[in-house]
């Protein structure tokens, strides 16, 4: 009986130590959980700013199409001819030059273009360096029963910090033939 009594001495400390270990475990989980969430806000902020930059590129591209539609239709005509293999090598080379020239205005890295000025304005306004551009600018046609629907397909990208986002829009257009 005396042996059992001595064995129960110090049980409170043992229980408290176990309890403390449990608390330590919970705190550790909380620390790691908070740490993993800490970067998520910066990522969300950069994502928003990247999307804003992509929107800027998109606006610029749509606006150019609105003010100079016939010039893009000429590019589209050559592109269609090249696609149907009815164009020669000269036309194919010309198409590449035309498309490069058309797209140059949308790239913020092109220092002589209007996009560079917009980039500067965005950078000063938001206090971070943005980049943006347009990856794809094309007209896609969808055949319906008795009619064709044409869409302007623009894929713009924007980046802020280390985040890059892509925005794609399909805008219905009417091409008179």
């Amino acid at each position: 009986m005396k042996f059992i009594t001595n064995n129960r001495r110090g049980i409170a400390i043992a229980v408290v130590l176990m309890f403390c270990t449990a608390i330590l475990g919970l705190v550790t989980v909380l620390v790691f959980n908070t740490r993993s969430h800490r970067g998520s806000h910066t990522y969300q902020y950069d994502t928003s700013r990247a999307l804003m930059a992509a929107t800027a590129a998109m606006q610029l591209a749509i606006y150019k199409y609105r003010v100079l539609p016939s010039d893009y239709y000429k590019i589209h005509t050559i592109e269609e001819a090249v696609r149907k293999s009815s164009a020669d090598a000269v036309a194919t080379a010309e198409l590449a030059a035309l498309k490069t020239a058309w797209m140059a205005d949308f790239q913020s890295d092109n220092k002589d273009g209007p996009a560079a000025k917009i980039k500067l304005q965005l950078d000063n306004s938001a206090g971070i360096s943005h980049s943006f551009g347009v990856e794809e600018f094309s007209i896609v046609s969808k055949k319906g029963s008795g009619y064709d629907k044409d869409y302007l397909k623009i894929r713009a990208w924007g980046s802020a910090g280390a985040t890059r986002k892509v925005l794609e829009e399909l805008i219905e257009v009417r091409i008179s033939k």
Partner: peptide, 15 residues
């Protein structure tokens, strides 16, 4: 003012 640039096409159907 905003200035856009482009290459005037010279091929068939391009003016």
């Amino acid at each position: 003012a905003l200035e856009f640039s482009w290459l005037p096409p010279k091929g068939p159907g391009g003016g």
